[in-house]
Design a protein around this nucleic acid. Structure first.
Lengths: 238, 238
DNA sequence: TCGCCGCGTCAGGGTTGCGTCAAAGGCGCC
DNA sequence: GGCGCCTTTGACGCAACCCTGACGCGGCGA
């Protein structure tokens, strides 16, 4: 696993490294950048707090032994306004110190010397669990002049009232809306809604498209949003 | 800090301990119970997965060396349906093993022998960050015209009197309320309430939804808040 | 101008899914 | 060991949904 995020392309993960030992910072920066993280670095607590506020990192790696302030104070300073994951580095193996840092708000505690593989794995774990629970709740609200589709809640609202759709109606609507503005062929619609073994039963489409128009179009006989492309398919226009 | 939660009174934190060494289980159970955690224990992976589904712990402590299955498989089995924090215990110090467990979905990795103070601190950290982001859009109190749900206290009040719910009823209500306004599919409800191996037993839903409506709706035969979306799922509307 | 094809509309019938009730099984508690 | 509550399971009636066939209309080509 090279990149911090697998699968869908997305904004790179931003890491803030806080340590006063140049060689450690260098090693971390090199390893992180090689894995496509964006990295900022700070050598003291004051800079760290400023950078955290300015750059809004997705995860923070914090060495407790800083020249200007106590590491725990840095944690508390961060926790006052953010829940960003904090991964603590420390040369101290003492149990008390670990407990203090963790209870102050740190998410993990790694003692030096540490293995780079392990640190990176802990970093991935910290970033992963900070991700929002929902898979992709992007663009869930689609509005037209006469109605609104909420893809996440599976709701359609028209003139302040929720419209009741049957499962098949909703499924068809969902496919069309997710391809908003694009032409969707009859075959594709049939296969997505009725299953891969369908493809020619265009009468299904005619019936259900009529139901959608009757429930959602201002004038069902002159559809504005569910447009027929004769011989090809249908298109949803907002 | 004796109790796991400071400040507001709330439901106790539930921990699932998975280890095949009796003395470790005993030590953990004693220490956790002394700190007001609710503790379940399992000695093998199969029991662990079953208990996790049945009891819905707030955090899991998992020893990788189990008699019946690989610890990483247990992690994957859990991650298939839940994001509950998993704290891994292991006698193996190897970096590869740590990386594998963390990338499989573990939240933390502690090598044996471990200090009890440190383990408890890591446990607190895991539970803390799993808590819903305070001040955000999630509310602890959800009110409707006829009743009030207190998600933190696990209580439902109607006309000034607390309504008595069975564990399953409460669990179902909780899933619906946490997705307030959104449609929740029958499969998702079944898996969240009855466990990942369920998904088709919709008769359970029919029975328990009827119980909830009888206890909470003003007119159970004409539900306003627990809405059926035929063929799709159920929706809670306030 | 005629005929054909594709689309929209409507109504009926088979089937599925939901709500309800009742009773048996399981588990913990007294 | 008995009791009570919770969960599970089955049966039944009813409403809603999905499929199907028939018909009318308009556009396009012959």
């Amino acid at each position: 696993m090279l990149s911090p995020a697998e699968g869908t392309p997305q904004a790179p993960t931003r890491v803030l490294v806080i340590d006063d030992e140049p060689q450690i910072v260098r090693a971390l920066v090199i390893n992180l950048k090689a894995r496509r993280y964006e990295v900022d670095a700070a050598h003291d607590g004051a800079t760290a707090l400023r950078l955290a506020a300015a750059r809004h990192p997705d995860v923070i790696v914090l060495d407790l032994g800083l020249p200007d302030m106590d590491g725990v104070e840095v944690i508390k300073g961060l926790r006052g306004w953010t829940r960003v994951p904090i991964l603590v580095l420390s040369a101290r193996h003492s149990s008390d110190e670990k407990v203090e840092a963790l209870d102050a708000g740190a998410d993990d505690y790694v003692t030096k010397p540490f293995g780079m593989d392990e640190l990176l794995a802990r970093l991935r774990a910290a970033v992963r669990r900070a991700e929002p629970a929902g898979g992709g709740d992007d663009e869930v609200l689609v509005e037209t002049g006469t109605f609104t589709v909420d893809l996440a809640a599976k709701k359609v609202n028209r003139a302040g009232k929720d419209v009741r759709l049957t499962p098949t109606e909703w499924h068809l609507l969902e496919v069309l809306v997710r391809n908003s503005g694009r032409l969707v062929s009859q075959k594709q619609l049939l296969q997505e809604v009725w299953g891969p073994s369908y493809g020619t039963e265009t009468n299904y489409l005619r019936v259900y498209m009529a139901q959608l128009r009757r429930k959602l179009e201002a004038d069902p006989s002159h559809p504005e949003h569910f447009v027929t492309e004769p011989g090809m398919g249908y298109r949803f226009e907002r």
